[in-house]
Write a protein that binds this DNA or RNA. Sequence first.
DNA 1: AATGAATGAGCGTTCATTCAT
DNA 2: TATGAATGAACGCTCATTCAT
Lengths: 203, 203, 203, 203
Amino acid sequence: MTAVQERSKTRRQRLLDAALEVFTSHGYSDAAIDQIARASDTSKGGLYFHFPSKQALFLALLGEASAALLTDVETAMAAETDPLARGDAALREVLHAFGGHRLLARLLLIDAVGAGKEFAVKLDELHAAFAALIARCLDDAVAQGLIPPQDTRLAAQAWYGAVNHVVLRWLMTGEPRRLEDAYPALRRLLLFGVTGASQEKVR
Amino acid sequence: MTAVQERSKTRRQRLLDAALEVFTSHGYSDAAIDQIARASDTSKGGLYFHFPSKQALFLALLGEASAALLTDVETAMAAETDPLARGDAALREVLHAFGGHRLLARLLLIDAVGAGKEFAVKLDELHAAFAALIARCLDDAVAQGLIPPQDTRLAAQAWYGAVNHVVLRWLMTGEPRRLEDAYPALRRLLLFGVTGASQEKVR
Amino acid sequence: MTAVQERSKTRRQRLLDAALEVFTSHGYSDAAIDQIARASDTSKGGLYFHFPSKQALFLALLGEASAALLTDVETAMAAETDPLARGDAALREVLHAFGGHRLLARLLLIDAVGAGKEFAVKLDELHAAFAALIARCLDDAVAQGLIPPQDTRLAAQAWYGAVNHVVLRWLMTGEPRRLEDAYPALRRLLLFGVTGASQEKVR
Amino acid sequence: MTAVQERSKTRRQRLLDAALEVFTSHGYSDAAIDQIARASDTSKGGLYFHFPSKQALFLALLGEASAALLTDVETAMAAETDPLARGDAALREVLHAFGGHRLLARLLLIDAVGAGKEFAVKLDELHAAFAALIARCLDDAVAQGLIPPQDTRLAAQAWYGAVNHVVLRWLMTGEPRRLEDAYPALRRLLLFGVTGASQEKVR
DNA sequence: AATGAATGAGCGTTCATTCAT
DNA sequence: TATGAATGAACGCTCATTCAT
């Protein structure tokens, strides 16, 4: 990487950092390009040199955040071999990643949601990627006889939705203080959900 | 109620209907007051007679939608006495209500989320009310020995989040075609999750 | 016309007047909407209530100016019956109209020309309308044997171009001081041009 | 001229060529420096090395185009001795030059006109030079008794305007297909115009 | 000589809100 | 009550120009 590319990368990164800050504190629509430029110690023109539009900037941010999150989770899962342990690792890592990056959580779980049709696709990709990761675990677990056969796609979504909502509550109400504290109870619920109890107990 | 009040109520309702339509098809920020006025066969001035601001209109809409949803769910729950049957009824009713009112689902699950800080409180109230409803079921079930003791608040949130996300997927991808079709699998997951399996199977 | 329409028309007219002033003093591109709004004692929003865009405002101005000019010329021509006298009247009226409305002349002969492709059509219509007016005179004159058969379309264009250019010189250099002073010499040239001299003299 | 100067000249010419292309296809205001730089296989910085501003670039282009046109016409006129034959040669050459260089015609007759006050002077110089050329012919013709005494300045302008407008029509509507086809009729009109017919025929 | 990243003033346009009628 | 003309602050974006390399 040449010195020029280096500097350019720096500027681009500064812009993304500032954008994350501003978008998450005001919401997509209420975030002004001017504000982002100011927050990144750059000029409006400079921003538009690196990103062709506000939408593209947000999209880039979404892409980087999604990729970073997915990478983290995949890495954590790769360390385990047992299917359920991998699901467990995914849960732990998601809570850890979001817990350590509040803004990233806000971006993906709040700001991206109501931002407009243009971002629904990107968000959908993230959801799909996550659901696929979990569904794979569950499919493996079913294959190994660890859990009973079931609709693993839907279970994966429910899994993801449950985690999301706990994170959302944490974002909105601040409870639990440390997001990771939700781990034990959440783990229990999710595992039990897919493990299944005897029919007699439920009926 | 006088005739004038009656007509006023009609107008107000027309405005709310139009607002639901426009807000859910464009998102809060991109929805124009002009559009809502036109869609409701009223004028901008007329809208401002009934609602003091765009924000207030959206808030009123959120309020009505939330209340309607909660009422439906509470009614459905009241028909059952067994705690777990009441939770089951809640699930069925939520899927039914959202499945029958796509716009309402969009409003609460998508548009209200990224609309801005001003609406976070309202959304929080809805979440809290729902969580309380479910948590009460679970507490009762624990008290009656139907399920093991657990963090019922968190379980309620996970429950709600799982349902939300399934509805969200339905909104975004159209799957499953009929939202109610998700009921059996979702029911199984949620009940098993709170019922708990034997420790041996999980470990 | 109701009082509201009356006021609206007034405002619209004020906007057109201001637009003429600003467009002709800065050129289309360098004229700022802000300036026009200020010059018309209105607000930018008010301007956009009456005209959907800068382009549309300029187009409306061109339309009104063209129409006014054409009407004047047609009226002047209608007073004459002899074909050549009608052409003569057209010349006199054009010089008179432009001479009395410097801004209108600038608008049509200078500002509209380089303003962009979008206005070429409108300008073309004006040119075509004028050329048709003159060509009709010449055709009649040919039919009555007043002038020899010739390419009347092209002659009409040459006629129009000659007048245009004299007006243009007047706009740019201020000569002659009174535009109407160019009438006698111009009349002579144009009439001789179409009347035709004996072949012997030319060869 | 050194090799470096040679290369510089080449670069300068490439810039002028690209500028002609871009200015005539977008108009002065809508032509972007970026576009010109790209079209000339240079950079923005490179452009600014050769020309201090957009205005100066356009002015240089105007100057070169004007000079080229005038040189062509003067050369063509120099080949003739008879005053009216020289005017005739001028007409032929103008139609030929514009007919063969559509972009040059656009530049001088359309783009330069509405581009702004800064270019009015340059345009005026061109008009004046042309008018002087024609006026000289006419003065000579008067002196030699070939045409009757008249306002030769104004006649020259009318001459020029008529030609201009025919070229303009060709640019805007594409008629006649070959600009040179307008020559015979135009020649007849212009010569007759200055030659003058007997008063009897006109009255 | 040449590059292209960076600047920042300025523009056309939008839209929630107001208010005379 | 209801209307819609009017307001004006704010926004996303452009682009001629500069300058470190």
